[in-house]
Design a protein around this nucleic acid. Structure first.
Lengths: 345, 345
DNA sequence: GCCGGTATCAATACCGGTATCGCTACCGGT
DNA sequence: ACCGGTAGCGATACCGGTATTGATACCGGC
């Protein structure tokens, strides 16, 4: 294999020093127009592309922004990632993604691993990292943005909303439509801390009215196959199960829209009127719901926007050279009840 | 800000040389048990974590595997990415993702950018890169795996299946059930080359029987909002449009399952019997379809497996130290007709 | 004609690790 | 006692760039 081209090769080909070549390629000043052309020409001819490793090591700067998300199968996170990617488009910064599978241990190693690339900033999902991870973030000396959650104390900056508040608000909205007999369907609540927070907020609102879930299926790890079961199929099956046990529920709350949509599929197949007989409420405002517009109540969360602002916060902090970005950006979800709003009148 | 800890700090704290510290931390041999403990202890105490930039520059190796995908909104790609992540779990290698938005220009810069980090290997979606990008890949001197498509000439290795063949087979299967009046719904076919190949394969099969699409909505860029419109809503709307124009179609082929599912939603809402009156056929076998099992014919593509084998090919090539991985791995999709199979009898 | 200032480039010293090689101490065998 | 072999460790030379400093030439002004 022929040796990779280095800057020295370019310099030699252009008849200048390494330093001049370096400056010319990066658009630094102090290089004559003639030499800039010669160098760029030479670089193109021999097919040179830089070595970020060397450049970053030397300059003590990188263009990387680490993004740590728990999952790729929940479409929410790819959407956040899209937001980050978009916001960074056109800038020098570049995102790098890491997936943790909701595992704190994996999260720790992922963060550590990212930090060892000396990124310009880090975007991490959630506020509730274990102490060890938190310390890592706090001592990193780069802007850290925690996203998706505001119920707690951020290490540095924070972009998101209150998960428990979102749960609470949804419950309040549903109560206002007159619903009283609530059921709940979720899954992986033992690992998905934010979904658990929403459930708790929801429950708090119910209890303040002297109510409670009549029945709930949390589905925390009963079987191994549960994780791989598509969310919609899971929602459909569990809704069937729940309604078999409690046929007189007038509202089912799901931990997210995928499950809720699965529930709707069951109801349609079983000939159950939604939201007439039973109302369904999900969370996130996924595009999925447009399959049957208005049928499912949901909270629209600004996932793209969360990704975008998180990226922008880092961008601004890096550019301004500040040490501390430490602001909290709240992007509150908006509830839409769909047909339920009409039915309630 | 306090200076970042370096290996020299660890060495000093442990009372050994940099070199011994380096070896101890990496688990190299030629270090006494006592020193290994001392070094690891010291590293933990002062909170040291390595610097991949320096390590990789020096060793001329990185643990990175670049993965270039066109999109994050099509759930297929996050699934491929999951497969890659899983296959690499437990190994030293680590994936880095890049998104191109189906833009060849962005693809070129992404590839270039990745190469400048000197990754151990590259996974790129598709076979039809422009010459310039192709040359970049060919000259990189690292294992390259192109995925998702086999209709063409790979740069190095290739994991996927024939897109046009998949389209052809689906058409053949549908023809075998007696369907004759075909419609088509797709979107972004001008950018999504693989979907276009499937359509072409499908069409070839029809033509070999003297048939053609009676009507087709390609939806290539009519309006700007089209891209952001959720795929399911898009499928629903276009199906309504198509059936309004051609009420007597007996089969609609969609460029993917999301659109097909949107079509199903329309049919359910409009009281159209599926697949009795009209059959729907999508592509990919997404979990989505489990919302109404059997209603939609589809080709199950092994997306996860494609990601996994692609990663494994690179892994093996890297470990064996071969220069050329150059094998073609076909993971053919399997067609499932669902209720249509029964109806056809 | 001498001087200070500016534009342009080259030489040098790193950045924080790892590869390589040499040195020392200690071992068993003869 | 001598020797070859090996385990354990450290000094040194890089890896491929960039920051910094220094050198050179050329300019207008007095």
């Amino acid at each position: 294999m022929k040796k990779r081209k280095t800057l020295a090769d370019v310099a030699a080909a252009a008849g200048v020093s390494k330093m001049t070549a370096s400056r010319a390629l990066r658009g630094d000043k102090d290089v004559s127009k003639a030499n800039i052309d010669k160098v760029k020409q030479a670089a193109r001819e021999i097919g040179y592309y830089g070595n970020h490793l060397a450049a970053s090591l030397s300059s003590k700067r990188t263009d990387l922004i680490g993004v740590v998300v728990p999952s790729l199968s929940n479409t929410v996170f790819p959407q956040v990632m899209s937001g980050v990617t978009d916001a960074l488009k056109g800038t020098a910064l570049q995102p790098v993604f890491g997936v943790t599978d909701y595992d704190p241990e994996a999260e720790y190693t992922t963060i550590r691993n990212m930090l060892s690339w000396r990124p310009a900033g880090l975007i991490v999902t959630g506020l509730d990292q274990p102490d060890e991870s938190r310390r890592l973030l706090a001592d990193a000396g780069i802007p850290i943005v925690q996203i998706m959650d505001c119920d707690g104390d951020p290490v540095d900056a924070c972009v998101g909303f209150s998960q428990s508040g979102a749960g609470h608000d949804m419950a309040a909205a549903l109560l206002a439509t007159g619903r009283r007999r609530f059921g709940y369907v979720g899954r992986n609540l033992d690992k998905d801390l934010r979904a658990a927070k929403r459930k708790k907020g929801f429950l708090d609102a119910l209890r303040s009215q002297g109510l409670d879930f009549i029945d709930a299926i949390d589905g925390a790890h009963r079987e191994g196959d549960e994780v791989t079961l598509p969310a919609i199929a899971c929602g459909r099956r569990k809704t069937a199960e729940l309604l078999a046990r409690q046929p007189d529920l007038d509202c089912i709350h799901f931990s997210n829209d995928d499950l809720a949509f699965g529930g709707l599929c069951h109801c349609i197949a079983a000939g159950i009127d939604v939201p007439g007989e039973v109302a369904l409420a999900g969370f996130n405002g996924l595009g999925l719901l447009e399959g049957f517009p208005g049928k499912i109540a949901t909270s629209h969360t600004a996932r793209r926007a969360i990704g975008e602002t998180a990226a922008r916060v880092i961008l601004e902090t890096v550019e301004s050279g500040e040490t501390d970005s430490g602001k909290i950006h709240i992007l509150a979800p908006t509830i839409s009840l769909g047909d339920l709003a009409v039915a309630a009148k």
